[in-house]
């Protein structure tokens, strides 16, 4: 594999390791965090806090770089418009997240831990993504 392909592979592996170490591949922990009015489990806040802290430093470093280390240029989101699509779509995502205690990262990471069940979740997720694509085309 070339160097360009190695960066995402190493990044994905670190990401999956972090999810598992932080307990985020355990839906009971994730749903425990969302159970704010019940037996609240704050663990997810520590995971999010640790990740955001490191990334905040990375963004400061990024601003001083002309280009990424292993690619020609940065390709980063630059939109700032708040739309119904953004808010409503995210709300819909949150309902799914709450039902099973899985979001996309832990869904894929769980393929190695609970392959059968995780494959169901991932397949349904991809089907949902395909549906959006079919309804509105490529945007």
């Amino acid at each position: 594999m070339n160097r360009e392909g190695l960066v995402p592979l190493v990044s994905g592996t670190l990401f999956g390791a972090g999810l598992a170490l932080g307990g985020m591949t355990d839906p009971a922990r994730v749903r425990g965090f969302l159970d704010l009015f019940g037996a609240w489990d704050p663990t997810l806040a520590f995971v999010m806090g640790g990740a955001v802290l490191v990334m905040a430093i990375a963004w400061i470093v990024q601003r001083r770089m002309a280009r990424p280390v292993f690619a020609g240029s940065f390709a980063l989101p630059d939109r700032s418009d708040i739309t119904l699509r953004l808010v409503g779509g995210s709300a819909l995502f949150g309902v799914g997240w709450g039902i099973a205690g899985l979001c996309p990262g832990p869904g894929f990471a769980s393929l190695a831990i609970r392959p059968g069940a995780a494959a169901l979740f991932v397949a349904a997720m991809l089907a949902g993504m395909v549906l959006v694509r079919l309804v509105e085309g490529d945007r």
Partner: peptide, 26 residues
């Protein structure tokens, strides 16, 4: 039942992963 240290360590790993993607691949 919370696991704050493991959570923080996992979060730092996730942050490093995202930082590698940002600074390495852009």
């Amino acid at each position: 039942d919370a696991a704050p240290l493991a959570g923080l360590a996992g979060g730092v790993l996730i942050g490093l992963a995202a930082a590698l993607m940002l600074l390495g691949a852009g």
